[in-house]
Structures are given as structure tokens and as C-alpha cells.
Nucleic acid binder design. Structure first.
Lengths: 201, 201
DNA sequence: ATTTGACTTGATCAATCATTCAACTTTTGC
DNA sequence: GCAAAAGTTGAATGATTGATCAAGTCAAAT
């Protein structure tokens, strides 16, 4: 059930949805780009929306090897890992001349009234990202003040990333992204400071 | 050049673009909802994109009276004003059952390769919002540490708002929004603390 | 070797898309 | 009061949309 054709469709759709968005990507776009005929596509997928489901499942199942492992290669410090992850998106913005961003974030805002199934897949993708960052924050241990809500902070880091991408793309200026990350860095620094203060007293 | 018909078109398009997005809103949608005939629409606008331009200009020109004045009614403290503004979006999410969010943010992510004119309008809308918040931060004076980059902080507050909306909408859970705002509140509190520390020493 | 079922081909479909236009009505300027 | 301009009406256009399907290919199983 995972033929080369099916994979070609999913990867092409992934690429197109990422750059053009879901609604602006036509089935014809996917077909011509992937060199697949419509009958084949509809053999594997009941409809366009099911292609999106497959794309979101690909993101969901591959977050470790396609995202985290790459961003964290050679980075061990848990706090550094967080900013290494964010820096991956920065690189994407620069390399694509602000065409890329966060594929999940784009779809989350584009699809206004998504199918419940799709909404859940978007949500689980966010949740997995948050869980990964939350793991880093947990690994940071006593470097953060006791009682810090690490889940909320992980959500906040996703928030910062999404908002920073949105603004940088619109302004077509990476400096906006950098300033946002700098404020986040300062926030983390303030937390680490507060944790040290408690330690001293 | 600003007939009742034209206004009806712009306000209807504003509403539809907000809820359904730009690409998912058809001219036929705008026409049927606004009870206007296609000839009239194309009398005022060369095409669909020009309707979007008019909508974005409406946002740009009305930020004071349509957004800030409403959010800041009876709120004088500059820091309170910032969170009152954010609370306005929270109310929108709740009242619309997560259909609303930030109209500019939605469009910014939906339109992947926008016309330069449109991109600039999106950008200027963000910039005006940031300038308003930056004004509050300026009014906060010595409550923030000397040397605080108030522009960067204002950008960061927009970032927080956009990211919080995105996550709350996707999770369909206002608690996500609240947790994000709580972390931002904590960051501001840490800054105010730091400002006081400097004052004491 | 033949049958079976998975897969491919590509012409074709109805629906919807943004847009056009000629005829018509109303408002404005003189 | 009349001519020009502004605005309205709604049928029609061609392009594109997502989707269908009958005919064909191919590999594996019996």
C-alpha cells in the first residue's frame, strides 16, 4: 500500500502545499509535477483532502528523523537544542527567499474550517513539536526555576517561532525573526537568572 | 468613488476573507452575500485582488477607531492597554467559536507569493499594530529597564498574539491562548522586576 | 498458462472559477 | 432639459477545478 507512485504523490503534494498552500495547489499541479496520471492518484486517494491527510501523517511520523535529528546533530545542551531547532526554520526562510516557513502553521491558518480529522492532525503535529521542546526544558532541570510550567513555556516557544516566521515572511526581512528570537533568548536568560538567585539564597 | 455599493462589497469581502480566507472566498460568494451584481463589482474593482487591496486599506486606515479605541476604552495604564488589546482577540476567538483570529495574520500566511502591493499592505498593517504597542511600551517609561529594545518587544508581543491564536484555533482550546499570554505576562513582570532592581541599587 | 487484482492511462465530466460586456437606469453637471 | 457620466443588471465566456471511468498493463499467485 506504499508504492513508489503513492510516495511520489505525497512528497510532491508536501512540497506544493508547503510553498503554495493547500487551496492554491491543484490536483493538476500535483499530477504534472509528480508525472503521475489522475487515475493513479485517485486509485490511492479518495480525494484531494486525503492527500493532505497523508502529508500530515508523514510530518507526524517523521518529526524525529526529518526534523529533530537533523537540527540536533552535534548539539547536546538542552537549551541550545531549542535554539538550534528555531535556527533551522531561520535557515529555511533564508534559503527559500522567505517562501518556506512552518508547513503546519501555514495550513493551520489557511484551512479555516478544516475537517475534524485534518484539524486533529494539525493539532497532533503541533503537540509533538511542543513535546519535543518540553523534553529539552525538562532536561534543563534546575537551570530553570523550580515550579516553571515547562509545558506552557514549550507552547510559548512554538508561538514565538510561528509568529516570528509570519512577520519575517511578511516583512521579507530576517532581522525581524532575529529580534524575536533575541527576546525569547532574553526571557530564557531571565529565567536562568531567577533560578540561580533561588539557588544562592 | 465611495458609493454605498462599493462599501457593501468591501465590508462583505472583509467578513468573508476573515472567516474563509482569500482563496476560499469566490467572487460569487461576495456577490450573493452583498446582494451586488458582478457588473457592479467590476465597475469598482478591476479584479478580485483589488477587492483585497481595498479590504487591507480599510484595516490600515481604521486601526485606531476600529481596533485600538475599542480595546482601550476605559483602560489608561499602558501595560494594561497591551493586554487589553490581546484580550480583544481572545474574545473574538470565543465569540466566533475559533473562526476568527487575526485577519492580517491569516492572509499573511495564506498568500504565499503575494503581489508586492499586497505584501506591503500586510506589512504596513503589522507595522501599525507594532507601533501602537510600542507607544504603550514607551509610555511605560521607567517601569521597563533602561535600554530595553521597545520596538523588538512590541514585535514580540505581536508574535505572541499571532502564535497564541494559531495554536488556540488549532487545538480549539482557549486555555492554550491563556497559557501563552500568561508566559508573556511573566516576561513583562520579569522586566518590571529588573527595572525595580536597578532603581534600588 | 491463466487468472486475479493491483496499478496505469488519459479522455472526459459537471461544477465552479474570475471575468466580460452590451443593454439599461440613474445621477450629475451645465 | 439635455447630454455625459456613473452605476446597475444579468446572461455569457473560457479557463480551471476536483473527480470519474472504461480500457489497458503488469506482476504475482495458482
Amino acid at each position: 500500500m506504499n508504492s513508489a507512485t503513492r510516495q511520489k504523490i505525497v512528497m510532491t503534494a508536501l512540497e506544493l502545499f508547503y510553498v503554495k498552500g493547500y487551496n492554491s495547489t491543484s490536483i493538476a499541479d500535483i499530477l504534472s509535477r509528480s508525472q503521475v496520471h489522475s487515475g493513479s492518484l485517485y486509485h490511492f486517494f479518495p480525494g484531494k483532502q486525503d492527500v493532505l491527510v497523508a502529508v500530515l501523517e508523514f510530518y507526524r511520523d517523521g518529526i524525529r528523523e526529518n526534523l529533530l535529528d537533523l537540527a540536533w546533530m552535534g548539539v547536546d545542551d538542552p537549551i541550545d537544542r531549542i535554539f538550534a531547532l528555531l535556527n533551522g526554520y531561520r535557515t529555511g526562510l533564508l534559503e527559500s527567499d522567505f517562501a518556506w516557513g512552518c508547513p503546519i502553521g501555514n495550513l493551520a491558518l489557511e484551512l479555516s474550517e478544516p475537517d475534524p480529522n485534518i484539524r486533529k492532525l494539525l493539532d497532533v503535529n503541533f503537540k509533538n513539536w511542543i513535546a519535543a521542546v518540553e523534553g529539552c526544558l525538562h532536561d534543563a532541570g534546575a537551570r530553570l526555576p523550580e515550579g516553571t510550567d515547562r509545558h506552557a513555556l514549550a507552547e510559548f516557544i512554538l508561538t514565538t517561532m510561528e509568529g516570528a516566521i509570519m512577520q519575517a515572511r511578511t516583512a521579507q526581512d530576517i532581522a525581524v525573526f532575529d529580534r524575536n528570537i533575541a527576546v525569547l533568548r532574553e526571557h530564557v536568560a531571565l529565567l536562568e537568572n531567577a533560578a540561580r538567585q533561588i539557588w544562592i539564597n
